[in-house]
C-alpha cells in the first residue's frame, strides 16, 4: 500500500494530467449528449454581455452589406403591396386572405453570437421569453432560412443553425412542388444536402429550393437556396442533391423570428389523428 502511494506521489505530474484530462473528457461527452447544457452556457449573462459588445462592432463592419440586403428586401416587399398589383375591375379573387386571419407574425432580433466553423453551430439572439419567444419558432433573414429556436431565457434565445448536423428542415423544389428534407453535411457553410427526392422527379441545376409548411415552423416559400449539383447514384432510388445556401451565415446581424399562430392547432389535430388511427 505504501509502495502504491509512493508510486503515485512520484508520478504526481502524470496523475494530475490524467485527472484533469478525464474531467475535460467528461465535460465534452456530457455536452455532446445533452446539447442543451452547452447551449444554456451561451445564454449566461456575463458571457452574453461581452458577445453583445463584439456584435456591436461587427454590425458596423457589415453595415454596407446589410443596407444592401435591406434595400433588396424592401423592394421585394414593395412588389407584394396591393398598390403595385394590377387590379382587374371585372373579377377580383383574393386567394391568400380568404380566411382573413393572420397566421404568421415576425419579430426582428439581433444576432449577438454566431459560429459557422463547427460541426454543430448555434446562434444567440437578443430576444427572449419576455418578447414572446419560445422554442421551435423558425428564424429567417432577408436572404433565406437561418434555423430554429432551441432554448429561451428571459432576454436571449439560442438558435440551432441550419449548419447543425442534427438540423432537418422540410424543403421543396419550387418549380414542381416535390418535397424532401434538408440536412447539413458538416463541412461547407455555403452548402447543404436535399435528400428523399425520388429519382423520377426531374431536378435541374439552378432550381430554387424553398421551405414547406409541413413542419408548421416556417411559412411556405421562404428561400433556402439553389440546386448546385444533382446526381443519381446507381442503386439508389433518390437523387443526391447539393444546394448552395442563399443565407450568408458568416455575416448575419439581423434576423426575423417567426411565430406561427396556428401551429398548435395544426400539431394537435395531427397528433389526435395519429392517435385515433392507432387505437
Amino acid at each position: 500500500m505504501r509502495l502504491l502511494f509512493l508510486l503515485l506521489w512520484r508520478n504526481n505530474f502524470t496523475l494530475l494530467f490524467v485527472v484533469l484530462q478525464s474531467f475535460c473528457i467528461y465535460l465534452v461527452v456530457q455536452n455532446n449528449k445533452f446539447q442543451h447544457a452547452s447551449v444554456l452556457n451561451a445564454t449566461n449573462a456575463g458571457v452574453t454581455k461581452v458577445m453583445e459588445g463584439v456584435s456591436y462592432v461587427k454590425e458596423y463592419v457589415h453595415l454596407r452589406d446589410n443596407n444592401q440586403l435591406l434595400a433588396t428586401e424592401n423592394a421585394a416587399l414593395r412588389n407584394t403591396l396591393n398598390s403595385s398589383m394590377y387590379v382587374s375591375d371585372t373579377v377580383k379573387v383574393d386567394v391568400n386572405d380568404s380566411i382573413g386571419k393572420q397566421q404568421y407574425t415576425y419579430v426582428t432580433a439581433k444576432v449577438i453570437n454566431n459560429s459557422v466553423s463547427m460541426r454543430n453551430n448555434y446562434l444567440t439572439l437578443n430576444k427572449g421569453s419576455l418578447d414572446g419567444i419560445h422554442p421551435e419558432m423558425g428564424v429567417i433573414c432577408g436572404s433565406g432560412v437561418v434555423g430554429i429556436v432551441q432554448q429561451v431565457s428571459d432576454h436571449y434565445c439560442t438558435v440551432m443553425s441550419l449548419l447543425h448536423t442534427k438540423s432537418r428542415v422540410s424543403a421543396m423544389i419550387r418549380r414542381n412542388g416535390f418535397f424532401g428534407s434538408l440536412t447539413w453535411n458538416g463541412d461547407d457553410p455555403r452548402e447543404a444536402v436535399l435528400s428523399e427526392i425520388d429519382k423520377t422527379v426531374p431536378v435541374q441545376k439552378g432550381d430554387t429550393i424553398v421551405t414547406t409548411e409541413y413542419s408548421a415552423v416556417f411559412p411556405a416559400g421562404v428561400m433556402i437556396g439553389v440546386v448546385k449539383e444533382a446526381k443519381l447514384n446507381p442503386g439508389s432510388n433518390f437523387h443526391a442533391i447539393t444546394i448552395g445556401l442563399s443565407t450568408k451565415f458568416d455575416n448575419l446581424s439581423y434576423v426575423y423570428i417567426i411565430e406561427n399562430l396556428l401551429k398548435n392547432e395544426q400539431r394537435n389535430l395531427e397528433a389526435t389523428t395519429v392517435q385515433s388511427n392507432e387505437q
Binding site: 502524470t14 494530467f17 475535460c24 473528457i25 465535460l27 465534452v28 455536452n31 452547452s38 447551449v39 459560429s115
Partner: peptide, 20 residues
C-alpha cells in the same frame, strides 16, 4: 476559451495534453 467559444472541455483537453 471554452466558455467563450461554447465548447466546454475541448480547448481545455487540448491545452492539457500540450502542457503535459
Amino acid at each position: 476559451v471554452d466558455v467563450f467559444q461554447n465548447t466546454m472541455g475541448m480547448h481545455a483537453a487540448a491545452c492539457l495534453l500540450m502542457a503535459y
